[in-house]
Each structure stands twice: as structure tokens, then as C-alpha cells.
């Protein structure tokens, strides 16, 4: 059986201010995802975690290497259909013009499908937004509300792979836990694969079964989450875990 997602020796240049190519932001990134799972992507800032997710969603093009979804390379697939299956949710939630409802219905409008009001309501409730006026102009929402609406907007597309870029970064603890719980439920119901960039080690430990540690311009470690936190395989990994643990203790 073909893997859900296969990444082979992926590399991406970083661009400096003059739009000139500079050395690789990351290279030699390889991984195989055989069954639906939740993967945390952690690592110091500037290692290209967001760029990796954007590249997997084809919002940026790989400079080298290949990505296959269900055995088909991105080169042979219409990027539009690719993104219907592999959806990126940005850290900075951008609302489209119109109401909250307009935003939630975007995926169904784009693909001529019926808007599942019940599902939308359920997800709003699970993310503690049950009381939100859906007629409200989306641009008037708070940062945390926008982030949750953007997430639900993507979930309603029902992608097979969800690429989450610090989607709880603007949320308070309670809302963040609610979103985590909702996403775990969603995964159990829909069998969605999630690749989740986070800076919160506890969140990574709570939500994921597998952890990717990005450092030194590559995917340095790819381990079961429990193993990574118990005993990182590399010195960089150990330092990173120690550093974040001391930060959390403060």
C-alpha cells in the first residue's frame, strides 16, 4: 500500500533581501507517513518549519527532492487538487472579506459543495465559540477568534492531511486545550493526518505520537514522541529539550 505522504530528500533555498538564492534553509528532509497520525514539528526558530509546511502544501515550490501523496508525486498532480487534500493553516489567521459565516463557507463555495452547517456549529462549540454571532464581520474578531475560525474554515474542506502552523499561538490556555481536544476528536473521526508545528513541548507531548525535530538545516530527528522526550538522539535535541524545559519552569 502506498504511504499517505512520502517526502524524499526535500530541500528549500532561503532567499535573502535582494531576492538572490542563498544556501539551503533545509535539505535532505525525508520522511514517510504510512498511517494517519499526528506529528509534532519542533525546533529552534529559523529552521524552516513553516516553510516545510508551506512546501508540503505547494504554496512554496521544493527546490530539490520530491513529495508524494498516496503514491503520486506533486509533479504529476494539479496543485489545486493537491491542496484540497493537503491543507495548510497559517499561524497568522487571515480573514476573507465578509462575515464569519462567509469565511466558514469558503471551501464549500470554492468547490460547489453543500455547506455543512451542523458540522460548523459543532466545531464552533468544541472550540468554545458557540456564542459567536456568525453574521458578524470577520475582520472585527479578536486574534484568538480569527485563529479558530481559520482552523475550522480549513477543517470544513475535510483534507486528508492537515498542516498546522502554531494554530494555538494566539489562544489562552483554556481555548488552546479546547482546540487540541477538538483536533484529536477530529482525527479519531476522520482519520486525518496532522503535521503540527508547535513551540509548546507539553502540547507536542499531549497531542502527537511522533515528533520531528528540525535543526542544523535538516530534519535531525524523527522519533516516537515518547522516545524523543525521554532521550533525544542528538546533542542538539537534548539541548533544545533542556532549554525549553528550563523556559517552562521559569
Amino acid at each position: 500500500m502506498a504511504a499517505i505522504l512520502e517526502i524524499q530528500r526535500l530541500a528549500k533555498h532561503s532567499w535573502n533581501q535582494d531576492n538572490r538564492e542563498s544556501p539551503y534553509l533545509f535539505e535532505e528532509v525525508s520522511a514517510v507517513i504510512q498511517q494517519p497520525e499526528c506529528i509534532s514539528v519542533i525546533g529552534p526558530s529559523g529552521q524552516g518549519k513553516s516553510t516545510l509546511l508551506r512546501t508540503l502544501a505547494l504554496l512554496d515550490m521544493p527546490d530539490q527532492g520530491d513529495i508524494s501523496y498516496a503514491g503520486i508525486s506533486y509533479r504529476e498532480k494539479d496543485p489545486r487538487l493537491w491542496r484540497k487534500e493537503i491543507c495548510y493553516v497559517a499561524q497568522q489567521a487571515v480573514m476573507l472579506p465578509g462575515s464569519v459565516e462567509d469565511n466558514l463557507g469558503t471551501a464549500s463555495r470554492l468547490h460547489g459543495e453543500v455547506y455543512d452547517v451542523q458540522l460548523a456549529e459543532q466545531l464552533l462549540e468544541e472550540t468554545l465559540l458557540a456564542g459567536l454571532d456568525r453574521k458578524k464581520n470577520a475582520s472585527e474578531l479578536s486574534g484568538g477568534e480569527k485563529q479558530r475560525i481559520a482552523l475550522i474554515r480549513s477543517l470544513l474542506l475535510r483534507p486528508a492531511v492537515l498542516l498546522l502552523d502554531e494554530v494555538t499561538a494566539s489562544l489562552d490556555n483554556i481555548s488552546a486545550r479546547a482546540v487540541e481536544h477538538m483536533l484529536q476528536q477530529w482525527q479519531a473521526r476522520e482519520g486525518t493526518t496532522m503535521i503540527w508545528v508547535t513551540h509548546d513541548l507539553e502540547q507536542a507531548a499531549r497531542t502527537s505520537s511522533r515528533t520531528w525535530f528540525m535543526s542544523g538545516g535538516t530534519l535531525l530527528e524523527d522519533q516516537q514522541t515518547i522516545d524523543f522526550f525521554r532521550r533525544p538522539a542528538t546533542e542538539a535535541g537534548r539541548q533544545f529539550v533542556r532549554f525549553l524545559a528550563s523556559e517552562a519552569a521559569l
Binding site: L59, R83, V89, A90, T106, L110, A150, R153, S154, L157
Partner: peptide, 9 residues
Amino acid sequence: EVLLSLGAT
């Protein structure tokens, strides 16, 4: 980009 990431033409 939001529209593209949701599979827009």
C-alpha cells in the same frame, strides 16, 4: 494564499 490553500482555482 488562504484561497489557494483551500484549493481555489
